[in-house]
Amino acid sequence: MITNFERIFNFAVTDFRRNKGSNIAAIFVLVVTILLATGLLMFQGMANHIISEIQNKIDITAYFKEGTGEENILSVKDEITNLSPDIKSVTYVSEAQALQEFNEKHQGNESLARAIEEVGGNPFLSSLNIVTTGKTSQYENISNILQSDKYKGLIEKVDFSQKRDIIEKVFSITSNVNKFGIGLGIFMMVIAILVVLNTIKLTVDNSKDEISTMKIVGASDWFVRGPFVIQGAIYGVIAFAISFAISLIAVYLFSSKISLIMPGFFAFKYFISNIIIFILVQLGFGIFLGIISSFIVIRRYLKV
């Protein structure tokens, strides 16, 4: 058993060394496929970043009645925060803070400053900004809770209904982007896999007469198939090493340019912090495709 495995392994390594031309073609196609998978993974990271950025900008605000004590507001804040794990953040903005933010935002706008002066005092109300991880229905639930009798005495208004359309539109866009990304990814991967299969088929085709001779001299299916499958794995490992080096260098070189287009997204940092996933995807993809393609292609020639 061990002797047989050793022989199969040696055949694979020797054949690999002696068929450089077709090996290079198979490895090249695998590299392209792995890089495509890597690109899709990177694209997913970028899409998630954009979606999360947009989602963070969507909130509902509960405005408290004038004169509501801070301890009451903070107690509502605690209650809302503990309401559901889908609540990402609840931020308390006091009347003074709201005025300050308004002034900072509209610095130099004299007509607005004059309007504030005419109103006299601070026209802003204390508020809670609530951001969730989820869909419109989650915002709706929170809005309903905040408008229930329990909080009627404290809360002046909740601005959900005005934002409802925007929230729905944003979530519909992000969900469509996700669906489109997955669909496109699957489509491209299927094409890539078919190309890999055909390239490895061409490699094995060169040996079809030898395969039939091996069977005629009494070799078992595994004795014939083994070297091809191991060669498939060797293609995968080499293709992984090349793809990993290319993606590492490319991400390093383009990271700053990507950050310019997508502020807050650092491609190299993302790559490094997810390096295990990238390695597993690239290595797994390379070896799996190499082995499976060889396995499938050689099957038809073994029927001797």
């Binding site: 068929n19 005629i216 001299v217």
Partner: peptide, 12 residues
Amino acid sequence: SIFQDYRLFATK
């Protein structure tokens, strides 16, 4: 088995 076209293993 011996064949007219020899059927040798070309890469061995």
